[in-house]
């Protein structure tokens, strides 16, 4: 039952990310998603290693990233995503189709052994697709960082599903990557904004030559 509730939480947070234009709400929701994912491994088996790892990831995703991103938000004075490539209504309706697609894919994935929750892999893939979709369909660099985080959450959930017993090593590596990534992006966005007075990536294409 609790796994189910976390699944629903993941899905709902994804839908919120798809359907809202307010960046601050998005940051909070992604943080909630990270925390929910952090709790997930503890529901099934309790080990010290696992606990430390969970606490680490919750601190990072639930506190450090949101605080960093909110600070960038304040510094840049950007609060809303404006006129995305794909409208919010359409994005919302894309959600169920993405989940249906990932359920279908997950039925065909050759997996070594059975997984405790049949919906975990679809939801993980769904989260991944949503992250990718956010990166593709939004204009602001900050939203794209959020999409990147959502995508990472998807990878994390996926890793948890397929390598349930030894996720730590892989995950620690990924987490480190993400940490560096977010850090670099935060700084980069800040500098881009100072240089060009905006963070709209569609206008960066003027730099291509």
């Amino acid at each position: 039952m609790w796994t189910d509730i976390i699944m629903v939480l993941l899905i709902l947070t994804n839908m919120v990310v798809l359907g809202t234009s307010r960046l601050r709400a998005c940051i909070r929701v992604v943080a909630v998603q990270g925390v929910a994912l952090g709790i997930l491994p503890l529901l099934h088996s309790f080990e010290w290693q696992l606990l430390i790892f969970a606490v680490l990831s919750i601190i990072l995703k639930g506190i450090v990233f949101p605080v960093m991103l909110s600070r960038t938000l304040r510094q840049l004075n950007v609060w809303q995503e404006e006129s995305p490539y794909v409208g919010y209504g359409l994005s919302l309706l894309m959600g169920p189709f993405a989940l249906a697609f990932s359920s279908w894919i997950s039925l065909r994935l050759p997996l070594p052994y059975t997984i405790h929750s049949t919906m975990l892999i679809p939801v993980a893939l769904f989260t991944l697709i949503v992250g990718l979709f956010i990166i593709v369909s939004r204009k602001k660099a900050l939203t794209q960082v959020l999409g990147y985080l959502v995508m990472e959450n998807g990878i994390y959930a996926f890793g948890m599903a397929i390598a349930y017993h030894q996720p730590m090593l892989i995950e620690l590596g990924v987490l480190l990557d993400v940490f560096v990534g977010v850090f670099v992006m935060g700084i980069a966005i800040f500098h881009i904004s100072r240089q060009f007075d905006h963070i709209n990536t569609d206008q960066l294409s003027a730099l291509r030559n």
């Binding site: 839908m15 359907g19 309706l93 989940l99 919906m119």
Partner: peptide
């Protein structure tokens, strides 16, 4: 408001997908 209602449609479809498991 339509976005809210689209969300309801999307949630209902998601619920339906979960019934397949």
């Amino acid at each position: 408001v339509p976005h809210l209602l689209f969300t309801a449609v999307a949630l209902a479809i998601l619920a339906l997908i979960f019934t397949f498991r």
